[in-house]
């Protein structure tokens, strides 16, 4: 997105003088990115807890997908449908977990959003900060979730059947990457979605109302 090159040098001097109210400058994405990364860094542990919610959801999803992949195509129909249900269930658990984490992390910052708007932040900028933050957390946490979920599931299989090397027979590197390619977008999308709604709502309400909110 391009910066609208508003002629700002000295604008604060003359800007308010005449009736010269202009549209506010749009800050570039890079600025929003700077805000977002700083916010994650400063609230590191809080961010880790949020990321933990995403991580657990995706780890569960990945482990179920992995056990499904390990079972391969030659399983009984009954077992196959049981696994499908598990996948759907894990997706749901994952969605609820992520939504919950992100809702919390946005609502606890309502006041901050109101303050930023009082200082001249545009709605879009506020939403953008939250979205960047969310997607970064979502991608990182989902990748880790995949790593741990899939890894742990394979490891457990090996431990349970050490004598049977063929137990992982139908599981290939490709299958693992396929699960990754599924899990990360799902994680990122759910995170972004769960952030977008409350962040947009927070950015759109009048600052006075945002400042009144006690969380």
């Amino acid at each position: 997105m391009s910066v609208k090159a508003a002629p700002l040098p000295g604008a604060d001097r003359e800007g308010h003088a005449a009736s010269g109210v202009r549209p506010q400058v749009q800050l570039p994405w890079s600025k929003a990115f700077e805000f977002a990364t700083r916010s994650v860094r400063i609230r590191f542990w809080r961010s880790m807890i949020t990321a933990g919610g995403i991580f657990l959801g995706i780890a569960f999803l990945a482990s179920v997908l992995t056990s499904q992949a390990v079972a391969g195509p030659n399983i009984e129909a009954k077992e196959a449908s049981r696994l499908t249900w598990l996948v759907i269930l894990s997706l749901l658990v994952c969605a609820v977990g992520i939504t919950n984490s992100m809702l919390m992390s946005v609502t606890e910052r309502f006041r901050e959003i109101g303050t930023m708007k009082c200082l001249g932040a545009l709605d879009a900028f506020v939403v953008r900060i939250f979205m960047i933050e969310a997607v970064c957390l979502g991608v990182i946490a989902s990748s880790l979730g995949w790593l741990v979920g899939t890894g742990l599931m394979l490891l457990l299989r090996l431990i349970a059947h050490p004598e049977n090397e063929a137990i992982l027979g139908s599981f290939t590197m490709g299958a693992g990457l396929k699960i990754l390619a599924f899990c990360v977008p799902v994680g990122a999308f759910l995170t972004a979605f769960a952030t977008f709604i409350p962040a947009l709502r927070a950015a759109q309400i009048p600052p006075a109302a945002a400042l009144r909110v006690d969380v």
Partner: peptide, 19 residues
């Protein structure tokens, strides 16, 4: 400053709050 606030759009309002 003689500007009717009701006439301002969101971006101009942000400008006003800022400056």
């Amino acid at each position: 400053n003689d500007v009717d606030m009701a006439q301002l759009d969101a971006q101009e309002l942000a400008f006003l709050r800022c400056h």
